[in-house]
Design a protein around this nucleic acid. Structure first.
Length: 414
RNA sequence: GCGAUCGUAGCUCAGUUGGUCAGAGCACCGGUUUGUGGUACCGGGGGUCGCGGGUUCAAGCCCCGUCGAUCGCCCCA
């Protein structure tokens, strides 16, 4: 409540244990993406606005209301990335990555959406992202899902999280299904909520997963996509589910799972938990075979997913606090001077240690204890004269004199 | 963009029907004879009660506005 500048709505200052959890999620992702042979890529935080508006659709709410768009000094319209996929597709085109296809890439970082903040939903938030560009194989879909599954298990949050899977078919299938849905909902106009009547014009698929109980009867009785699946689309979906079964991944069909944007094809999936209120989707993605082409590139089938780091961090168990190995407690100017060298040597030897900038012994010992250090290395004139330091185990309270040369070994973490 | 609830020290919160109501715990800082932390004891700093109006003799407590937070809706790339 103090005066002075305040944090911008929907942003967060992440600190302490929360920051540790955040880092733990990123570390797990980095480790696992290597296991799957995904290359790390870095792309800009902002792009030309057209990169997003052309891929998503000029008229959607997403583009018209929910992007951070601004003009730079040259008058160009720029937008802070609201997702990774479009920027990666742009890079795929402009960097000539076509020759690397199929390209398995992973990235993570901040993304920006101008939305009302609520649980697990911020204006600047952070995502993990994994994509496979340039493959039309269902094995790519499977590999991404297995990666996602391993990540969630590694983070210890697979409990209570289910993989929901659906297919949106190919273009021909999707169009046929969409027409059937519109016909179905038109005949139930009187039963639909106001929101869904609006969806009927703009985005009829979205009626299927409406939360309004008034919509459920019509939504539940609506035709599934299955009857409209072309042979190819059916075969593709079967190969995805067979691949998941072969990899031992539990999944469930959710025929009501849809995507808001038109470029999605075939596989759509979400890992969902019931532990985050209305924001229960923890990781989501799908196949977007038309996106690269929409950006002016060659026809490039692709599939990918993104996951909110904050949401994952909220669900993950708190990592063990990372205390340092040792705190150096010098007494007197001569000792402090010698300790500067000692700290440097210990750190070069890979020992995590720290020394306060000031304070008497008592104060330094208090700080050492609070820091979670396993040892205090006490260095006074007496010890210095003998070429030793007193090493105190802060857990057991035991203390022993150790030659300076043997300090690193004495406090090395197991 | 819409709705509901909420907004008191760094944190978690008390503050009765408006009249010592500016408090507690934790945290922080200092001390309990200056070479030993974690437990204990003593002391201290810190809040114009989100902000701005209004009602009243009197408002943290009532009313309006505003900003922010939380939860939900819309949207969800």
């Amino acid at each position: 409540m103090s005066k002075g500048p305040q944090r911008i709505r929907g942003t967060q200052d992440i600190w302490g244990e929360e920051a540790d959890r955040f880092q733990a999620v990123v570390a797990a992702f980095e480790r696992i993406r290597r296991l799957y042979g995904f290359s790390r890529v870095e792309t800009p935080v902002f792009e030309a606005t057209a990169v997003f508006s052309r891929s998503i659709g000029e008229t959607t709410d997403v583009v018209s209301k929910e992007m951070y768009t601004f003009e730079d000094r040259g008058g160009d319209s720029l937008t802070l990335r609201p997702e990774f996929t479009a920027g990666l597709c742009r890079a795929f085109i402009s960097e000539g990555w076509q020759q690397l296809a199929p390209l398995k890439v992973a990235t993570h970082g901040a993304v920006f959406r101008y939305e009302r903040p609520q649980k697990g939903r911020y204006r600047q938030f952070h995502q993990l992202d994994a994509e496979i560009l340039g493959s039309d194989s269902p094995l790519a879909d499977v590999e991404l899902l297995v990666l996602a599954d391993q990540l969630l298990k590694d983070l210890g949050i697979a409990e209570g999280v289910t993989l929901q899977l659906n297919t949106l078919g190919d273009a021909e299938t999707r169009d046929a299904w969409r027409a059937a849905l519109v016909a179905h909902f038109e005949s139930h106009r009187a039963d639909l909520s106001e929101d869904s009547l609006a969806r009927l014009d703009k985005n009829p698929l979205r009626i299927l997963d409406s939360k309004d109980p008034r919509d459920r009867p019509a939504a539940d009785s609506a035709p599934d996509i299955d009857a409209f699946l072309s042979h190819d689309a059916r075969t593709f979906f079967d190969k995805v589910t067979a691949g998941l079964d072969a990899a031992g991944i539990a999944w469930e069909r959710n025929a009501r799972l849809v995507r808001g944007l038109d470029y999605y094809r075939h596989t759509a999936f979400e890992f969902v938990t019931d532990r985050l209120g209305a924001q229960g989707t923890v990781l989501a993605g799908g196949r977007y075979d038309g996106l690269v082409e929409a950006l002016g590139g060659p026809h490039t089938p692709a599939v990918g997913w993104a996951a909110g780091i904050e949401r994952l961090a909220m669900l993950a168990a708190a990592p063990a606090p990372a205390g340092i190995d040792a705190a150096i407690v010098p007494m007197g100017e001569a000792a402090e001077s010698a300790a500067i060298g000692l700290v440097a040597d210990l750190r070069r030897a890979g020992i995590a240690c720290d020394m306060g900038y000031k304070g008497n012994m008592k104060k330094r010992m208090q700080r050492a204890n609070a820091s979670g250090a396993r040892f205090a290395i006490i260095l006074g004139d007496d010890e210095l004269a003998r070429g030793e330091a007193a090493v105190k185990n802060l857990v057991s309270g035991e203390q022993a004199n150790v030659p300076l040369a043997g300090l690193a070994e004495a406090v090395r973490a197991r």
